[in-house]
Amino acid sequence: MKVQFLKSTVREFPPADKPEVVFVGRSNVGKSSLINMVTGRNIARVSKEPGRTRTINYFLLEDSVYLVDVPGYGFARVPKEEQERWKSMMENYFRERKENIKMVFVLIDAVAGVQKLDEQMLEWLQFIGVPFTVVLTKTDKAKQKELSRTLKQVKGYVGETAIVMSSAKEGKGKKEILSRIFS
């Protein structure tokens, strides 16, 4: 699979000449690991420390679609002012690129379950009318009880058809995610 890093930016986006697929989720939910698993390359920087992604990162997949990795929300250890800048940057990005965004993958940790900030993200995406799919990450680490609880929480927001189970470690969900990216 052909993929290349294009740029990290705060507000100077690439030309709106290709559809964009965006990966959002809490800090440390596994966005970069998932992007690496889906593309088959270690192209997105993975860190064990929450909040390492601080810009909007563009990758070009198969010369036809932009994959967009955005800063995580939640428990990143950064000053409140930095979190406010990220929030403003995200709102600006979605406002400017709404017509170009064809899918948002909302990553939710299968072990931790749906958190308040995840609920807010799902409600906000519904409000602004952007199509999204929930990707449950780290399913390999979740006990059956945790997975059942998280699935029940998510189904309350999106139903069953907009959920993909994934594990970057095991490669689970890759086919489903690529199918949604290219459809």
Rank of each mutant, 00 (worst) to 15 (best):
A110T: 11
P71V: 00
S8H: 01
G156W: 05
K102N: 08
Q115V: 05
K174D: 02
V164K: 06
T137V: 12
G30C: 03
A112V: 08
K174I: 11
E12N: 15
D69M: 10
G173Q: 07
G72C: 03
M103Y: 13
R11N: 11
S8N: 12
E160V: 11
M37P: 03
N28T: 02
I181V: 15
F75M: 05
E170M: 14
M1I: 09
F75Q: 13
A76E: 00
E170K: 15
F132K: 07
L61K: 11
L125F: 14
M89I: 01
Y73G: 02
R97Y: 09
G173P: 08
G51E: 02
F5C: 06
T139K: 05
Y66Q: 08
V38E: 14
F132I: 12
L61M: 14
E176I: 06
L151H: 02
G129D: 13
A162S: 14
G113S: 09
D109A: 09
M89S: 00
E12V: 10
Y73C: 00
L117R: 06
V3R: 06
A44P: 04
M37A: 07
I128N: 03
A142K: 05
V134G: 06
T161E: 15
K143D: 11
I101G: 03
V111H: 07
M165S: 14
G173S: 10
P19H: 07
E84N: 11
A16L: 13
K116I: 09
V135L: 08
T39P: 13
S33C: 03
L60K: 05
M1L: 10
F5S: 08
G173C: 04
R52C: 00
M90K: 04
F5Q: 02
K98N: 03
I108W: 07
I181M: 05
G74N: 03
L136W: 07
A110M: 09
I108M: 04
A16Y: 06
R180T: 09
M37W: 08
K48I: 05
P14Q: 10
E99W: 14
F127S: 11
G72A: 03
V38D: 04
K138C: 08
I108G: 05
E96I: 13
T53H: 00
E146V: 00
N57L: 04
Y157Q: 01
I35T: 07
A112T: 11
K175Y: 12
V111T: 13
N100T: 12
Q83F: 01
G51H: 00
Y73V: 04
N100I: 09
R149E: 14
K48E: 10
T150R: 04
V70I: 15
R149D: 09
V10P: 00
R77Q: 11
V134D: 01
K98D: 01
P19C: 09
A112R: 15
W86K: 05
E91P: 01
K87D: 07
F105M: 13
